[in-house]
Nucleic acid binder design. Structure first.
Lengths: 135, 135
DNA sequence: TATTATCCTATCGGATTACTAGGATATAAA
DNA sequence: TTTATATCCTAGTAATCCGATAGGATAATA
């Protein structure tokens, strides 16, 4: 299940992508327009900024804006920051790999191999979709 | 993330699929072999039985067994019982559909359309893989 | 009748999620 | 230089979910 955090983050980013001249937009404006709790959105935009997706300006006329062209913001990158692993199990995750407690042999695990298939097909979508495609 | 419930359920089913003549296997045998808490597995096998995947026999020589040929047990069906929706958001789920609180227009939602793509590719895998493929 | 194994309901601790509180800091306009 | 504006940042919290457990009821076999 996609977390609200990820959903809200994606919606906010598409909102920013639609701005003329990449003008800064205030949190309150986005939160009202997209029906998102302002304080919650605040923390989400903060992590997006800390991870290099957004820039910010303080004071009057301030707000958040995209740091890159929407075409260059891959969904896989955003998903990994907001949602975490793309894989359904840690033992097939490329960026968040963990061994399973219960599995003596990963390659012999039936679930493992099925989940590799799912990961590959999902990753294929997220790698080939950018923020520009969402608009 | 795939829940332990689903993972354990799938592992138990593949264990049963490997039995000669579809002989009943006791919970304790599976739980030991697959390193799964016996009581937890008990509840999982119970729901699989109630949903028509497994049959059971009480008393000595009893246990659980598959009710269908592994080839005829589609992953999509098992996933929906154990994990719930295959889609990442309820608003694109075919079997567990729910509207979003924050979305006034589903079709205009950027996240919505991306998640339809993901759902379709995942569903395509689960619909075309059976328990027999896991072995 | 004793033993075996599933059936069933209820519960519980811990982790995660969605969200909130409250002030610190920086910027811009007056 | 003051005031208003808006982000920055650290905690905290209520609610929910997950994984696992307890303990007995029921049914089948020997």
């Amino acid at each position: 299940m996609l977390s609200k955090k990820t959903k809200y983050g994606l919606k906010a980013m598409t909102y920013l992508a639609r701005q003329e001249n990449n003008e800064p937009v205030q949190i309150g404006v986005i939160s009202k327009s997209e029906n998102i709790s302002q304080k919650f959105l605040e923390s989400i935009l903060l992590t997006l900024r800390k991870n290099g997706f957004l820039g910010s300006k303080k004071g009057k006329g301030g707000g958040y804006y995209l740091l890159k062209d929407p075409k260059d913001i891959k969904m896989s990158a955003v998903m990994r920051i907001l949602e975490g692993p793309i894989a359904m199990v840690p033992c097939v995750s490329l960026n968040f790999y963990e061994t399973c407690d219960d599995c003596p042999d990963e390659n012999a695990c039936a679930v493992h191999n099925l989940m590799i298939e799912v990961r590959d097909s999902t990753l294929n979508i997220f790698n080939n979709r950018s923020l520009a495609d969402l608009i």
